[in-house]
Design a binder for these strands. Structure first.
Length: 262
DNA sequence: TTGTGTTTTATTGCCTCC
DNA sequence: GGAGGCAATAAAACACAA
């Protein structure tokens, strides 16, 4: 094959010596000794290795219509089937990468939620301690004034300390009885203050719309009182819950929509 | 040099759409 | 029924550490 060797630099990764083939109308060169498998496409300002040409085409459209397949195959000196296979494998690689990106996004979202959970849990504990302290002060004041003292229904046991690691949260959460009923939540209305359920220490609503609910064991539930639909109904929605073995949180599970209308 | 892990190319079987 | 897509996987090439 007639021609000469020229320096080639496509990028920091792709460089070397090219065999320039003047018989190819000046726009195709070959890496090394001219093996057609290593041809390079040259425009006025850019060199394309075959894979670059395929990549460029893939960026434009990741599906390959027959006409474009034939064009690429002709240009690259490949069988149309090889071009099709390349696109197929390229789509598979893209999908894998996309899954990795999605996973990273979900993980950062999960970490953020976990952080929110921790701070809410800490705040919850502080408020409970404050309620107990104020209750004791009130009782002492009533004793001093000679007023009859209503017997407390029960002394809520102290909450365990807030979890610090994900594994701790699993254990810790399983120690809390989730027995606040939806009515309890709804009856707290717009007061916005933390409420201690009279059966125990499960507090749960700070007046916002996230709480624990017996209809959804293990769930953190959101109450949506007006979903914007014409029927005017609201609904409860399980935002996430611990899976069966309390090993991890899950936001979707088989067997239900996670919605309960009221 | 060799064992091991990764990447790329190609094949197979199944599914969907026209 | 044929074309094309996808998932799974085999085979070859390649990279790299011991």
């Amino acid at each position: 094959m007639a021609g000469d060797l020229r320096n080639f630099q496509y990028s920091s990764m792709d460089s070397g010596r090219l065999f320039f083939d003047p018989s190819c109308q000046g726009n195709i060169m070959f890496i090394g000794n001219g093996d057609p498998a290593f041809r390079v496409f040259v425009t006025s300002d850019t060199c394309y290795l075959p894979v670059h040409l395929l990549e460029k085409s893939f960026e434009t459209e990741n599906k390959l219509e027959p006409e474009r397949k034939s064009q690429l195959a002709n240009k690259l000196g490949l069988q149309p089937r090889q071009v099709a296979v390349w696109f197929q494998n390229r789509r598979a690689r893209w999908k894998t990468k996309q899954l990795e990106r999605d996973f990273d996004l979900l993980k950062s979202s999960y970490d953020s939620l976990l952080s929110d959970y921790d701070s809410i849990h800490t705040e919850n504990h502080k408020l409970k301690v404050e309620v107990l302290s104020l209750t004791e002060k009130l009782q002492a004041k009533e004793v001093a004034a000679g007023a009859p003292i209503p017997a407390p229904k029960s002394d809520p046991p102290p909450l365990p300390p807030p979890p610090e690691k994900e594994e701790d949260i699993v254990t810790h959460t399983s120690t809390i009885q989730l027995n606040v009923k939806a009515e309890d939540h709804l009856s707290t209305g717009s007061g916005g203050s933390a409420v201690v359920d009279e059966d125990g220490p499960q507090l749960v609503d700070s007046g916002d719309s996230y709480f624990l609910n017996n209809d959804y064991p293990g769930c953190v539930v959101q109450s949506v009182e007006d979903d914007g639909s014409e029927d005017g109904r609201g609904y409860l929605r399980c935002l996430w819950r611990w899976n069966r073995n309390n090993m991890r949180r899950e936001s979707h599970w088989a067997g239900g929509s996670g919605l309960k209308f009221f």
